[in-house]
Design a protein around this nucleic acid. Structure first.
Length: 275
DNA sequence: AGCCCATCCTGTCCGC
DNA sequence: TGCGGACAGGATGGGC
């Protein structure tokens, strides 16, 4: 479900309500969550009585910091949700974990229909090590020179795969990669190393524009994505190519948007105005 | 090194 | 209506 803008939106919502809250109760509701815990994990009960000190995002991962050097590392993958809700709200079979607090009416729930996501109970040091070894730089923090260098050092990859590779750049997923390539007027099949200096700059600017605009509109709500407080995003209204197969290209109005699989992912682009 | 594909799951939608 | 297949915002690992 969520890519960087959606995760950023969720994190901002959670942070504003949860920092300073002390945990009253933390329970796993599904056995599969326990199976996904890594060696060295803590039991949920170890978090009870602890206070949330900070919440932040790294790529598509969410990190919650508690006192006592404890942390939670959450990845929502395709269908995961992390949201605050009234305790009266029904708990369905897709809700896998639950946190209750002493001085907050709402509770935090982790829900995930397809069960691809994870919620790991780890020491902060372990979380930081894991995040650092799996993720490249933040796309909104990298400078243009480093961006160009990364294009050259992974020059044999197609742009689509280059953008999706979390070890190269962290946080971009299937929707935003297509939207960036469209705005930069570059074909997803182009090799990263083949870009001219000007094209590399164009992609960098498109990347920044798409991500910042999507964050300001609170992400893209397709199917049932909502943020931490249940609000929908609005960036889906600005999608130019994603899921628009067969529709006239909004830029050249000559060709129809086509869909091709790249590395098993549907990729949408205009065959005429992306080079 | 990077590709393609299957895999982990559940739900929805589309054609017959 | 029912049934089978394709597909879905992600990431990994094996084979080539």
């Amino acid at each position: 479900m969520p890519e960087l803008p959606e995760v950023e939106t969720i994190v901002r919502g959670l942070k504003s309500e949860l920092v300073g809250q002390r945990v009253r109760e933390f329970v796993f509701l599904s056995p599969h969550l326990e199976k996904k815990q890594l060696p060295g994990s803590f039991q949920p009960a170890a978090y009870e009585g602890r206070k949330i000190l900070d919440i932040w995002r790294r790529g598509k991962m969410i990190i919650i910091k508690f006192d006592g050097q404890l942390g939670l590392l959450v990845h929502l993958k395709m269908t995961g949700q992390l949201f605050l809700t009234e305790p009266e709200q029904r708990i369905d079979r897709h809700t896998h974990a639950l946190l209750r607090f002493y001085h907050l009416k709402k509770e935090l729930r982790f829900r995930d229909i397809r069960k691809f996501g994870f919620l790991n109970c780890l020491a902060l040091t372990q979380i930081e090590a894991k995040v650092d070894q799996n993720l490249g730089p933040e796309p909104l923090e990298i400078d243009l020179a480093s961006w160009k260098w990364l294009l050259k050092t992974h020059g044999q990859k197609r742009l689509k795969n280059w953008l999706l590779d979390q070890k190269i750049i962290a946080g971009i997923g299937n929707i935003y990669s297509d939207e960036m390539l469209f705005r930069a007027r570059l074909k997803p099949f182009r090799l990263a190393g083949s870009l001219t200096d000007q094209e590399a700059t164009r992609l960098y600017r498109a990347m920044r524009r798409v991500l910042t605009e999507a964050i300001s509109l609170k992400g893209s709500s397709i199917s049932d994505y909502v943020d931490a407080s249940g609000e929908k995003g609005r960036f889906q209204e600005r999608h130019r190519v994603y899921a628009r197969e067969g529709q006239l290209c909004p830029r050249c109005r000559q060709e129809k948007i086509i869909r091709k699989k790249i590395n098993g992912r549907s990729t949408f682009f205009c065959p005429s105005c992306q080079d």
